[in-house]
Design a protein around this nucleic acid. Structure first.
Length: 564
RNA sequence: GCGCUCGUAGCUCAGCUGGAUAGAGCACUCGCCUUCUAAGCGAGCGGUCUUAGGUUCGAAUCCUAACGGGCGUACCA
């Protein structure tokens, strides 16, 4: 149910009947309860344009409002139009939602091919906290667009082609005699350190490492085989992390940097053919109208750079994947890079003009001192360790530790949920301060509060014996507020998708859960003295709430629990 | 130097296509469990929305500048 657009349509019709042209139509949710359910603030602006009195305009609009679903319309203040909806309409809409698997949410009108590029770990090292936000936010956006009916293509642009791989492969070869690959590569951080040490200390080894980079990139069979083996094991590490976090990325989604290797020379040729290329200080680059520094696509030594790879990927995504929209879920620090790459891709016609290219930027994860997140000794914190800690901490917060079997699953669900939710609930563009206690709290805008609300509802439903046949009656204030919130889900999802802002969803779920808690306190459901009709009505409200929370969390990649 | 970005309650954050008295949570104070999960609910306390201009009937929101923090600044990704 698109509540807002339904009311938009009503106002639009009224404006039309009143003979008023208004391109900037927009109703908003009422700022306060006293101002109704929705408000239209356009009369003031219109009055200005038409040189009349805003209240007159408002009156003219309201007299032309003609809709079954509206209970009451009022003009207030300077010319605000406040709108109340009929309870009977809310009831019947809710009833429809309760009978629909997708909670009455319509699929997007035009199905688009949406590419979400996220996670993108570097194969030379193990995943660390720096990869967390991209992975979590990207997966959520992919889920969201999928849920709204789009064709989502997840792309994991892993880093497998840098200069470090010569060193790593050369070192791997050396170790071949002692121990197997799996064992040597069990701890990639350690392996990298050892290889680096070897590189720094032994000139002969360093030369070999450099030689191997060239060999890998030019397709030497021996080196390539070792390299593939290395990537395979490193990728398996990532997949463990994805599994732990319930991230939906699979091998099919992997399109590594190396995948675009063959396209790189064509990228440069294309830019040349478009007369966009300049040679500056020996490097081939594109000068940009909005920047002092050019985008370098080929180094003076002939090597290519990540800009070249990104252009190749854009080209591929346009031509082969037929993308309508490409989202890059990458750290905000790469803002300028993407601005440049997008501009060049469009200018060079590698990407159709109407393809939407968006850098979904996010801020840095900070510790409590406001510094970038590191381990106590200043190193990077492995993601797998962070996840394990989340689970342990979740376990410690659980009251009921008796249930030995259930506790592991509960701790995982709660710990992972907390970790993800904390990240998703802040505006992704700002830096965010990581705090265990806050994210694992039952209070406030946390995953656990939502999971608790859900479990509470399930507990009631379990206790109830009988059918759910009946109508939804909206009688009290708390029921009404809950009903309105439930009908708002669709608008929230579309808004969140439009802006690529998952925190709109978390904010909504928190408000919904809060409204439910209030309703729960005030409206007994199964208690004695509650008549059958009321019981079913309240059960239905509870059930839709639970379904909405479950669906909302599912989009965020967070699971619910039947009991906590 | 230039560019990007942020600056809202003691703390962590919402709100930013301009709208009525700027919202939550934490912390602090107080009230509510023989009653569906009190891991909850309610009430109170707490604000020069960094500052100064500007646009507007109306600005936390848009524009300009200053100050303060973070980041980026051509052959790493």
């Amino acid at each position: 149910m698109k509540l807002k657009s339904t009311i938009d349509a009503i106002i639009s019709k009224a404006l039309h009947s009143a003979n008023i042209q208004n391109p900037n139509l927009s109703v908003t949710k009422a700022a306060k309860k006293e101002f109704g359910d929705f408000q239209y603030n356009g009369a003031m602006g219109l009055a200005k344009k038409l040189q009349t009195n805003p209240r007159e305009i408002a009156t003219s609009i309201t007299t032309h409002i003609d809709a079954e679903i509206i209970e009451k319309v009022e003009i207030a203040g300077a010319g605000f139009i406040n709108i109340w909806l009929k309870n009977s309409w809310l009831s019947s809409e809710l009833k429809k939602i309760s009978q629909d698997e997708c909670l009455g949410i319509e699929k997007a009108q035009t199905k688009e091919n949406i590419i979400v590029d996220y996670s993108g770990p570097n194969m030379a090292k193990e995943m660390h906290v720096g990869h967390l936000r991209s992975t979590i936010i990207g997966d959520t956006l992919a889920n969201l667009f999928e849920f709204l009916g789009h064709n989502v293509i997840r792309q994991n642009h892993i880093g497998d082609w840098g200069t470090q791989f010569g060193m790593l492969v050369a070192y791997l070869e050396e170790l071949q005699s002692s121990g197997d690959f799996q064992e040597n590569l069990k701890d990639l951080e350690e392996f990298y350190k050892l290889a680096k040490k070897r590189f720094d200390e032994d000139a002969a080894f360093a030369d070999k490492a450099r030689e191997y980079v060239v060999k890998i990139q030019s397709g030497d069979a021996h080196c390539l085989k070792l390299w593939k083996r290395f990537i395979d094991i490193s990728l398996a590490h990532c997949e463990e992390v994805y599994q732990k976090l319930h991230i939906k990325l699979t091998r099919d989604d992997v399109k590594a940097e190396s995948y675009y290797n063959d396209m790189l020379s064509q990228v440069v040729q294309k830019l040349d053919a478009m007369s966009m290329l300049s040679v500056s200080e020996g490097a081939k680059c594109v000068f940009l109208p909005f920047s002092d520094i050019p985008l370098i696509v080929q180094k003076s030594d002939g090597g290519y750079l990540y800009a070249t790879t990104d252009l190749g990927a854009l080209w591929y995504r346009n031509d082969t994947l037929k993308a309508d929209k490409i989202l890059y879920v990458v750290d905000a620090r790469q803002n300028e890079h993407f601005k440049s790459v997008f501009w060049v891709a469009k200018e060079a016609k590698m990407v159709r003009d109407d393809v939407v290219l968006k850098h979904i930027a996010f801020g840095t994860m900070m510790n409590e001192q406001g510094k970038p997140f590191k381990t106590r000794d200043g190193g990077t914190l492995k993601l797998t360790d962070l996840i394990d800690e989340a689970i342990i901490r979740a376990k410690n917060t659980l009251k009921d530790k008796e249930d030995a079997q259930g506790i592991e699953h509960k701790a995982k669900t709660i710990g992972i949920g907390a970790l993800k939710y904390a990240d998703l609930s802040v505006n992704r563009e700002s830096n965010y301060i990581f705090n265990w206690d806050r994210m694992l709290s039952f209070d406030g805008n946390t995953a656990l509060y939502m999971q608790y609300a859900y479990a509470r509802i399930q507990s009631i439903i379990r206790k109830y014996v009988g059918t759910f046949d009946g109508d939804i009656k909206i009688e009290s204030e708390s029921e009404r507020a809950l009903a309105l919130a439930l009908l708002d889900f669709e608008d929230v999802l579309y808004k969140s998708a439009h802006e690529c802002m998952p925190n709109h969803i978390t904010g909504y779920l928190y408000e919904l859960a809060t409204l439910f808690m209030r309703f729960y306190e005030q409206s007994p459901i199964l208690k004695e003295g509650i008549d059958g009709e009321t019981k079913i009505s309240r059960l239905l409200l509870s059930k839709i709430t639970a379904d909405t929370i479950k669906q909302g969390l599912a989009i965020l990649g967070i699971e619910t629990l039947e009991q906590i």
